[in-house]
């Protein structure tokens, strides 16, 4: 807990890193000043893009003592405003799961290679990034904690599967390698409460360590202060749960 007589400082900047297939992509990196060692967090941005909210969230994790790295999953789509790039990706049906997982794995390896890292790395994502969080925590070894905020399409019907999203993340539940925190709004349409329940049942059945919280009077994206979905009370509680969970699993 911060005290007013403590020194505080951070650096936040754009860097490059190796993502899927060894591609060099850019990423936003925020880190506390000092030798650490600090735990690492990979932030997976949402469908609306690698936007200002995600830069702020990345700095928020650094403020709380994490080496926070948010890879630009849309790097290969060209450059422009985050909205214009995200609109192009939206029209293309998102990015392929395999590519996103490769980029997130690259970010995890980048963090773990740093001399200031304590050796533990978590992953956080919202919306499509929440789904990708579940996916990467199941398919890529090396994460120590995962935070899924309202990721839809974790549960998918056969009709939902596409070339880019060939397998529903819930089908990989047995492979989940780290504790999972899930935050959901009861009024969300995707994921619905029934889908959250189905995911929770799968986690239980496979004996996984998880913690799910369902918030009343909240829908999709209730952390986003710049959208009508924002819910102040639920967002404050949700952020507390995120940092409590991460402190438990990423401290050394």
């Amino acid at each position: 807990m911060y005290q007013t007589d403590m020194y505080e400082g951070m650096v936040a900047e754009t860097i490059t890193m190796h993502g899927a297939n060894g591609d060099v992509i850019n990423a936003y990196f925020a880190r506390p000043l000092g030798a650490g060692p600090f735990p690492g967090m990979v932030l997976i941005h949402h469908l609306p893009g690698w936007d200002e909210w995600y830069r702020e969230a990345t700095r928020k994790f650094a403020h709380h003592g994490y080496l926070a790295l948010s890879p630009n999953l849309y790097f290969r789509e060209g450059h422009g405003t985050p909205e214009d790039v995200a609109a192009q990706v939206r029209a293309a049906g998102g990015v392929a799961d395999a590519q996103a997982m490769g980029d997130v794995e690259g970010a995890m390896r980048h963090l773990r290679s740093l001399p200031t890292c304590n050796g533990k790395v978590g992953v956080f994502g919202t919306c499509s990034g929440g789904r990708q969080t579940v996916l990467v925590a199941s398919r890529v070894p090396g994460f120590d904690a995962a935070v899924d905020c309202w990721g839809g399409r974790v549960v998918m019907s056969q009709e939902d599967l596409t070339e880019k999203q060939p397998v529903a993340p819930i089908d990989y539940t047995n492979d989940l390698t780290c504790p999972l925190l899930g935050l959901f709004g009861e009024e969300d349409q995707a994921p619905t409460l029934a889908q959250v329940d189905e995911h929770e049942a799968a986690l239980k059945a496979h004996g996984k360590t998880y913690e799910f919280h369902r918030y009343a009077d909240a829908g999709h994206g209730f952390f986003y202060y710049d959208r009508p979905a924002y819910r102040q009370e639920q967002a404050v509680d949700g952020w507390q749960k995120v940092f409590t969970f991460l402190a438990t699993h990423l401290s050394t």
Binding site: G78, T81, E83, D84, A87, R90, A91, P228, A229
Partner: peptide, 22 residues
């Protein structure tokens, strides 16, 4: 998801020139 209208989902139309970038 839209970027501006105060809805969770909207009917979005992007008129584009794909060769000219995002």
């Amino acid at each position: 998801h839209p970027f501006h209208i105060r809805l969770e989902h909207a009917l979005n139309i992007d008129f584009v020139n794909e060769a000219a970038g995002p």
